[in-house]
């Protein structure tokens, strides 16, 4: 359904252009839920903004394709993209405050979307907006529709974003950290709602999250990113049982365990290289305990391990 091929996205900065996404490739099949995880700053949000055609002005896609049902979204005009957005592909943004308009009421923002993409009239759209707010567990929805974003708590704003994204029953939902600001009971409720919509309308979900518990619960397949590239791709059970890439191994090792007392948590030492200063070899080498000579000289390709697993690491050559 969605196939990302060798996507390269670059940003203009005061110190010249930097490559933030460097050859990202993965595909999402209809009706499945794919999880995207990875180091903070590795390019997950930029990937989803690239799909949505919502990159900031300083950014541009310099290579690759984003095929949605066979059509290359990268080549779409602004108008064509606007038609796709909201109805076909909807997105839940990581930071709700940056994507909700502070001067319009919550209701007006949901209604605008619904009026643009469905045949509902104003009254029906408002009803629908209230209905959606109730579905995501917002109390006093009838009043909240007429309130402004700053009057809501962090988690309520996030739920407004979710209600908005789901209001036109999109075929593909790109959810960037949809539940980070939510408590676990409401999170469970939202995840259930997503699953329900998925079963009803075969919705496909791309779920970006730091919460590996949510990944374990929701996803069929997982893509792990590091420094602007995909470093591992696997079915969810395989990823948790036998992680391949040393970064994935470190990531899974950092999860705090509810059942044991640890004074300090395990961390992967060092920091990720800045975009623009990527090493010639493996991008994880500086922090990898398994690194050997070749790793510092040559960048590993994404090896296909033939069981649906892929790993960008010389150990799997």
């Amino acid at each position: 359904m969605l196939e990302i091929k060798n996507l390269q996205t670059r940003f203009r900065t005061d110190n010249g252009e930097i490559t933030v996404l460097d050859g990202v490739s993965f595909q999402i099949n209809k009706g499945e839920t794919i999880g995207v995880v990875g180091e903070s700053g590795c390019g997950k949000s930029v990937t989803s903004l690239s799909i949505m055609g919502l990159l900031p002005r300083t950014a541009r896609i310099t290579g690759g394709e984003i095929l949605y049902n066979g059509e290359n979204l990268v080549a779409f005009s602004k108008d064509q993209m606007r038609k796709v957005r909201g109805k076909e592909i909807a997105m839940i943004f990581q930071e709700p405050m940056t994507s909700l308009n502070p001067v319009y009421t919550i209701g007006a923002q949901i209604m605008e979307l619904v009026l643009n993409h469905t045949s509902m009239n104003k009254k029906q759209a408002k009803e629908h907006a209230i209905q959606m707010l109730k579905l995501v567990g917002i109390p006093r929805a009838e009043e909240i529709v007429d309130e402004y974003p700053h009057q809501l708590s962090g988690g309520m704003r996030q739920r407004v974003m979710i209600a908005m994204a789901m209001s036109c029953s999109p075929s593909l939902l790109v959810a960037d950290e949809p539940t980070t600001a939510l408590d676990v009971t409401i999170q469970a409720q939202i995840l259930d709602l997503m699953r329900e919509l998925q079963q009803k309308s075969e919705m496909t979900i791309m779920l970006i999250t730091h919460d590996l518990g949510v990944v374990a619960e929701m996803c069929d397949r997982v893509v792990v990113m590091y420094a602007g590239q995909v470093v591992e791709e696997a079915e969810v059970e395989k990823l948790f049982a036998t992680p391949k890439h040393p970064y994935t191994v470190g990531l899974l090792g950092s999860i705090p365990d509810m059942d044991t007392e640890q004074e300090y948590l395990f961390t992967i030492g060092g920091t990720v290289p800045s975009p623009g200063q990527m090493p010639a070899g493996c991008r994880f080498a500086e922090r990898c305990q398994k690194a050997f000579d070749k790793c510092y000289e040559q960048a590993p390709p994404l090896f296909d391990l033939n069981d649906g697993t892929k790993s960008r690491c010389w150990l799997y050559e």
Binding site: T180, H210, L251, S254, I255, Y264
Partner: peptide, 20 residues
């Protein structure tokens, strides 16, 4: 207020260890 919710688990560990 939710200091580590936007962080991946590895950075989350780094920040929590630091705060400790």
């Amino acid at each position: 207020d939710e200091p580590v919710s936007a962080l991946d688990v590895s950075i989350q560990s780094q920040v929590l260890n630091l705060m400790r």
